[in-house]
Amino acid sequence: MVYSVKRIEALAAVARISLRPGEAERLCRELDTMYARAEVLQDTAAGENPFLETVLLSELREDRAQPPLPRETVLRMAPATRDRYLTVPRAVEE
């Protein structure tokens, strides 16, 4: 048993997902199953080579501007706006 209700709740907080009453218990069991299957990864060593495929500098995008989306489109998609801004409740400074 790797997952406890407390750990699930902590995970849910990191992922910004609210849980219904009782949901954490169910998730404990479900994540335990997933974790158990993933544990087998510990058995084999494998070397790292993150650069098997790369792109050259010359293949990257040229620095040339394209027209952006119209502001009305941006604001129209937003759940809440004020004047020309999107709004959310006051954010605590990060």
């Binding site: 941006v74 004020r82 004047d83 020309r84 801004y85 999107l86 709004t87 959310v88 409740p89 006051r90 954010a91 400074e93």
Partner: peptide, 11 residues
């Protein structure tokens, strides 16, 4: 932009 009870977002 933090304005009162809201935060305004400019992307």
């Amino acid at each position: 932009i933090h304005a009162g009870k809201e935060t305004l977002i400019d992307c």
